[in-house]
């Protein structure tokens, strides 16, 4: 006994609406909430991949109410949907069509359309009293079980809301950046290789020094390059906006002429005595 039943027309209209939402949100590259992501597209996309094709196929195979109950229908719908991708890919690859957004969209829409038409036809032919239709069970009269149901219902609702919140946050919010400043040296050519290895005493070498500010705020840095006991390069009060990068070609002349001399690059947050980031570089000094 069911208190409410979804008509066949409404059910297929809802499915068509989901597919239409997917097509429109992709074709118009719809963005919502100003977050550069189409929420309707995500929801419609998930439904069109993991549920709708299988559901329609199950409806085509089992149009009567008595053949399967709702959990069985859901389980088979999911499994059959998971089995569909290879068929689509075989067809697309088989006729040498590129597998990309448009071809996938067209093939999934076509698949849903064809299977949907077959299932609609089969269910239409099934006598109304035997036809499977979505329904809600009647509201139970008050019993001692009702309080347990209420507790379960409240608990599960809270859990579901929390989880939806988590899912929504993960999908919608941009990934939080760790508070970090990237400090690095590149060779003259701008790669992390081909650095100068050896120089004559008194000669200079060139590096690109980069400070990438991924902190949550604008930063002010001081930069020192030391060799031996001396500071051979200093640049104070380097303002770098949040998400911006400071890049400078620096030419330094080592003053320590040991066979192996060390250049130490120290980056300070302005006003602090302890280095925030440190790099070091070994240079071989050739005999003069």
């Amino acid at each position: 006994m069911r208190s409410f039943r979804l008509s066949l027309e409404l059910e297929y209209a809802l499915i068509a609406l989901v597919v239409l939402t997917l097509v429109i949100s992709i074709q118009f590259d719809g963005t919502s909430l100003g977050l550069g992501l189409s929420v309707p597209r995500v929801i419609a996309g998930i439904l069109c991949i993991v549920f709708i094709p299988g559901y329609l196929l199950v409806s085509a195979f089992f149009p009567t109410e008595s053949s399967l109950n709702i959990p069985q229908r859901l389980a088979l719908s999911f499994a059959l949907s998971l089995s569909m991708p290879p068929i689509i890919i075989f067809i697309l690859d088989g006729i040498s069509l590129p597998i990309q957004l448009q071809t996938i969209l067209v093939s999934v829409t076509l698949l849903i359309g064809i299977v949907g038409a077959i299932s609609l036809f089969r269910r239409w032919l099934t006598p109304l009293d035997q036809r499977f239709l979505w329904g809600l069970p009647p509201i139970q009269p008050s019993t001692s079980r009702r309080s347990i149901d209420n507790v379960l219902w409240i608990g599960i609702s809270i859990g579901a809301l929390l989880l939806l919140g988590v899912i929504g946050a993960v999908i919608l919010l941009p990934e939080p950046n760790a508070s970090l400043t990237e400090f690095y040296i590149l060779s003259e050519t701008g790669v992390a290789a081909s650095y100068p290895n050896e120089i004559m005493p008194g000669a200079s070498i060139r590096f690109q020094i980069v400070i990438d500010n991924q902190e949550a705020q604008p930063m002010r840095y001081d930069l020192n390059i030391e060799n031996g006991d001396q500071t051979i390069y200093a640049a104070d009060g380097l303002e770098v906006a949040r998400g911006e990068r400071f890049q400078r070609m620096v030419e330094v002349r080592p003053v320590d002429f040991s066979q192996q001399t060390l250049l130490v690059f120290r980056l300070y947050r302005s006003g602090e005595a302890v280095a925030y980031r440190t790099l070091r570089y070994w240079i071989r000094i050739l005999p003069s």
Binding site: I49, P86, I88, I99
Partner: peptide, 21 residues
Amino acid sequence: GMNYPAFLLEFVELTGLSVKT
């Protein structure tokens, strides 16, 4: 087997989400 990569590819293309997410 190609089912899972194909399934992922469909998912990435149709939802527009990153493969990592």
